[in-house]
Design a protein around this nucleic acid. Structure first.
Lengths: 248, 248
DNA sequence: GATAAAACCGCAAAAAGATGCATATATTCA
DNA sequence: TGAATATATGCATCTTTTTGCGGTTTTATC
């Protein structure tokens, strides 16, 4: 069997079945595994497939979601960086949806090894591209607006969970009215998340400070930490610090 | 034997068998391998064939190696169109992951109003962009390779579901060995889906016909329908039709 | 952190390719 | 026709490519 022939066979197999094992290929074509590895390396260099430990994956299989324009991106990146520092190896972390959470997902250091539990499709999408993170998706009916699972199934599943940390993408926050939101189902999920976590962290750009929405999520007293893009000493944050919340 | 004669013989052989070995040609025509090599070099320069170490490949053969982004995309689109016709308003539809399923998701007519239950992140992502489809995501641990939920949670949830239709993205299908796959967890999920559905539809490009993988999903008899990109009367499908499966 | 599988490295043998040259065959032109 | 010339072929030799194997290192997974 000629080398090119072999390689085109490999390409066919990998595109056909999304994944191939070097062992299988070696047996099917009756050559040593070294030869297969050399082929795979060569083809990976030509961008024809993705080489992984033990075999190869099809290129077309790993589609990723196009990230559209995100409002106040830089602020959110800053918040994400601050939030990362709270996560330690081995933790169970709950996250909601929202663009700030997505930025957090992107900012996670590669060596971090933790379990992320989420209800957000885009967030889950980011997490699975991280090398050392275990992803648990709490499924149920998916809300088209917020792209998260909503409904009784999620809430009852959250009741059975005890997480170390919960990151809330924040819609509106105010000293007097606490956290508020505008979607009944999302609020239900957030409430359940808050109850399921030891520490509750709200990620909020300063623009959202001192705003309110129609539906209440929780009082400020339920929050452990508030993270914004500005310095914790900023005067904007004084009222929040006074409530006893840790402000980062 | 004249040079021209020899070369036209070579061309016939290479187009007939897609590949030729210099050794074989040399013996068949009783000339030295050097002569064959010189012939092959000459013909390669004239673009009549592709020369490789040890022999040559036909031009058309090499064209099929050219990598599209999503493998066999057109075939998958055709399959998706056929599959759409099975879905009626109000149905509960189960779907696995895989690129063919994504094509199905994209091909759904906008006025279709149904409930889709899935374990695949990319598929869920497509469904939520559809105006009239209710999306239910069955959550659990997310497999990074296949981008679907796997584990006992999914399986037990599936046990509590009765769907009208189940679309299986197919990895390998064979009359004798039935549906097979290469990932244990994925197989578990597929099995549960099959049990949870009145009708089970396998979506499979013809290239996957008569191939097998290591882990068995189910026998052909479990399938209600098989959809490929070719005409149902195609002779390739005869063995499948004979098992009693509906072939579209 | 132990363990087994996979990847890597270097080497050597086998196969294939290139090159120079002698010889054989074909072609041309007087 | 036949000598001169051009082309083609085979062979010996050397180089390059390809491949498998033993030993070591790295990686995954529990």
């Amino acid at each position: 069997m000629l080398k090119k022939e072999r390689q085109s066979f490999i390409l066919r197999q990998v595109n056909l079945h999304n994944k191939v094992l070097s062992v299988d290929l070696s047996q099917e074509m009756d050559v040593s595994e070294d030869t297969i590895r050399r082929d795979l390396n060569e083809m990976a260099q030509q961008d024809k497939l993705i080489k992984v430990h033990g075999g190869a994956l099809s290129k077309s299989f790993h589609l990723s979601i196009a990230s559209d324009h995100v409002y106040a991106l830089n602020s959110k990146k800053l918040i994400a960086m601050k939030a990362c520092r709270l996560i330690k190896d081995g933790m169970f972390v709950l996250t909601t949806g929202g663009t700030t959470i997505i930025e957090l997902a992107k900012a996670l250091p590669p060596e971090l090894s933790a379990t992320f539990i989420t209800v957000s499709l885009p967030a889950a999408y980011e997490y699975i591209h991280h090398p050392n993170i275990e992803v648990i998706f709490l499924g149920d009916r998916i809300s088209k607006n917020s792209q998260i699972s909503i409904g009784g199934g999620v809430v009852s599943k959250l009741n059975g969970i005890k997480a170390d940390l919960c990151f809330l993408g924040t819609n509106a926050i105010d000293v007097k009215h606490g956290l508020t939101d505008n979607d009944w189902d999302v609020v239900e999920v957030k409430k359940a998340m808050i109850e399921a976590s030891d520490r509750v962290v709200s990620l909020s750009i300063t623009e959202k400070l001192n705003t309110t929405q129609r539906i209440k999520v929780c009082d400020l007293s339920k929050l452990t930490t508030l993270i914004t893009e500005v310095d914790p000493q900023d005067q904007l944050l004084i009222p929040y610090r006074e409530t006893g919340i840790e402000v980062l």
